[in-house]
Design a protein around this nucleic acid. Structure first.
Lengths: 199, 199, 199, 199
DNA sequence: TATGAATGAGGTTTCATTCAT
DNA sequence: GATGAATGAAACCTCATTCAT
C-alpha cells in the first residue's frame, strides 16, 4: 500500500494548479487551500515557490531524458525502431501526464536565470537524442529528410500536442494513440512504407 | 507615412510583454514603463488589463479566421492546394508574429468565462476550416488519413511550433519555411508525391 | 507659511519611529498608521523601507559634513576656535535632532552593502574633519594629546551622548549645553586654560 | 577544564547575533543555525526570545553593578583613585565585551514594560555609583566640575565608546587603553595634574 | 489627454512559538 | 533532550484599478 507523503501532495497540487492557471496565476494561498495546509506550513515542504517549480521541472525532465537515453543506447534497434520508440515514449508521457507537460513547456520563462539554465540544459539534452536519432536515420538511408533540425522540431511539437487534447475517456487508448503518432512520425521523416508494422 | 497611435503602441507593448512574461507575469506598471505612459494614463487606451488581452486575441484570431475562410471559399482550388495554402497562411502568420501566437495559445486560461467563450469560439471556427479541408481531401481520395481530427491536431501543433524557434536572422526565409512545412504537411496527410511542386 | 508635504511627513514619521523602536522594530503598517496613509500609499513616497532609511541618513549626514567642512575651511580660526566650533555644531545638532542621531548612529548595520558603503563614506569624511582639527592643534602646540585618533573618538562619543538625554525642557538651554561641552572638549585635548572665553 | 553547556552556547550565539544585527534583526532560525540546534530545541534553553535578551542584559549589568559597588565601597581610596578604578572597570569591560555593551545599550527599547523597568533600574544603580564618585570628588575639592550630572554623562558616553572601535589586534592593549582613558577622565573632571601617576 | 495620489486586496515569505513524538 | 510538523500573525511589497485635477 502506497501512502502519499505531505511533500508529495504539495507537489501534486502544485502541478495541477500550475498547469491549470499558470505559475504566476497560482497563488501560495490557493496552493495552501488545495493541500489543506496553512500557507506557512507549505514552506516546510517546498523552499520558495520557484524551488517548487524547478523541482517539478527537474524531475519531469530527468525522467524523460533518462528514458530517451536508454532508447538511444540500445544497439540492436534500427533507425526506424528507435524513432518509433521515442515517439511512443514522448506521446505516452505527454498524454498521460499533460500537467507536467504544460508546466515544463510553458513556464520556463518564469524561472530565474540560473534555474532556467539548468532546465534548458536538460531540455537540450532530450532534444539532442531526437536530433541524433533523426540524423542516424538519414545517414543510413532510412529517412528522407532535408533539414534535420526543422524536422526534429516539427516532430516534437506535433507529438507534444497530445497533452492538449487527449483524454483517457476518449475513443483512443494510450497504445492506439502512440501507434497513430508513430505512423505520422514515420511519414514525416519520409519512411512511411511499413509504418503499420512498426506501430 | 504610417504613424502609430498611442493606442496601437499600448497594444504592441502589451503583446511583447505578455508573450515574454505571460499575462499574469506582466504588471500594469511594466506596461506603463514600456509605453512611456503613467499607469493611470494607460487606462485611457485600454479598458481593464483583461480587455487588452481579449482585444489582442480577438484581432489576431479574427484576421486568421478571415484569411482561412477566404482560402476555404476558393472554388477553384484542389484539396492539395487548399491544404498547402492553409499551411502557408498558418506558418507565415506564426513565424512572423510569434508574440501573437504565444499569447493567443497560452493565455486562454487567463480569460474570464465569457471572454473565453468568445475566443474559443473563434479558435474553433479556425480549426473547423482545417478539419473541412482535411475531410474533403479524404473524400476526394487525395489524402490517406485514418483519423481526421487527430491529423488536424497534429498538423496544427506542428505548424504552430515555428513561432517558438523561427527567426528572420536564420538560414531559412519565410517562403522557404512555409515551403518546408507544406512538404511535411502533405507527407502527414499521406499525399506526398508531388510535394516539391507545391512548395 | 510653510506647509509640510506628504513626503516630508512620511520622513518625519519614519525618523520618529526608527529612533524609538529601531528600523527592524518598526513595521510598515505602523509607519502607515503614523502617517495616516494606507501601507500601499506609503510606497508612493518612499521607495523601499531601506530607501527611506538611506534617505534619512544621507540628508542628515550630508548636512553635518557640509557644516563641518565650512568650519574646517575658515582660514582665520585658531585651532582652539575651530575645535570649539566643531563641538558647538555637533552638540547642537545632536541635542536638537536626537532622532536623527540615533538612527544615523544605530542603524548602519541595517543597511545593505552598497548603501552602507555610501553612509560610512560620509561618516568617515565627517570624522576626518575632526581628526584634522585635532592634529593641527597638536602641530601648532595648542593641544596636548598623545593619541589623536583615540581622542577624536573619545570626543565624538562624548558629544554625541547629548542626544540620549538633553531635552529643551531641562535646566540647560542649547547654548549653555554647547558651552559646557566646549569646556569639556578643551579639557580633553589639554587646552583648558582660557576655556571660558571660547565657550 | 571548562566545557561549555548548551545553554551557554545559546547565550553566546544570541549575544553575537543581537550585537551584530540587533534584537529585531535577528531571527530565531538564525539563532538556531548559529547554535546547531533546531529552532524547536532552542526553546528548551531559552524561554521566549525576550527572556533570552533580558537574561543577557541582567547578567551583564549585574556583573558591572557589583564590580562598581565593590569599588565604591573601598574606604581607603581617594576620589581620584575611585574614579580611575571606575574608568578602568568600565573601559576594560566595554572593550573586551563589546557585544554585551551594544546589546545592553541599544536594545533596552526592545524590552517590554516590566523587563525594561528592571534593566533600567540596574543601569540607574550603576550610574548612581559614578554620580556619587564624581560628587564626592567635588566635595573634597579634588574635581573642578560645574554640573556633576552632565559630566557623569559625558564621562560614561566617552568611555563606552571603546566598544565601538577597540580591538585586541590594534596597537593598544587593554591596559594601555584603560590608562589613556583614565587620563582623559581626570582631565574632564578637572584633576589632570598627576594623571600619569594614576594611569 | 495625462497623471499624481490613493487604496483594498493580495502577492511571497518569515515571524516567534507550540506540541506530539 | 531533541525535532519535524504545524500555524496565526505579520513581515515587506506589488497588484489592478479609480479619481480628482
Amino acid at each position: 500500500m502506497v501512502s502519499t507523503s505531505t511533500g508529495e501532495r504539495v507537489q501534486a497540487a502544485a502541478l495541477a494548479l500550475f498547469a491549470e492557471r499558470g505559475y504566476h496565476g497560482t497563488g501560495i494561498r490557493q496552493l495552501a487551500d488545495a493541500t489543506g495546509l496553512s500557507s506557512a506550513s507549505l514552506y516546510h515542504y517546498m523552499g520558495t515557490k520557484e524551488d517548487l517549480l524547478v523541482g517539478l521541472m527537474r524531475s519531469s525532465l530527468t525522467r524523460l531524458v533518462d528514458a530517451a537515453a536508454a532508447i538511444a543506447q540500445d544497439p540492436r534497434a534500427t533507425s526506424r525502431e528507435r524513432l518509433v520508440a521515442l515517439v511512443h515514449l514522448h506521446v505516452r508521457t505527454h498524454a498521460s501526464a499533460p500537467d507536467e507537460t504544460r508546466v515544463v513547456d510553458d513556464e520556463v520563462r518564469a524561472l530565474s536565470e540560473s534555474a532556467r539554465r539548468e532546465v534548458v540544459g536538460l531540455r537540450d539534452r532530450y532534444e539532442q537524442v531526437w536530433q541524433d536519432a533523426i540524423e542516424s536515420g538519414i545517414a543510413d538511408g532510412t529517412f528522407q529528410v532535408g533539414d534535420a533540425a526543422l524536422v526534429r522540431r516539427a516532430l516534437l511539437e506535433m507529438c507534444s500536442g497530445v497533452a492538449r487534447w487527449w483524454t483517457p475517456a476518449g475513443a483512443l487508448d494510450l497504445d492506439a494513440l502512440a501507434g497513430e503518432y508513430a505512423v505520422l512520425a514515420l511519414r514525416l521523416v519520409g519512411a512511411p512504407r511499413s509504418a503499420a508494422r512498426d506501430a
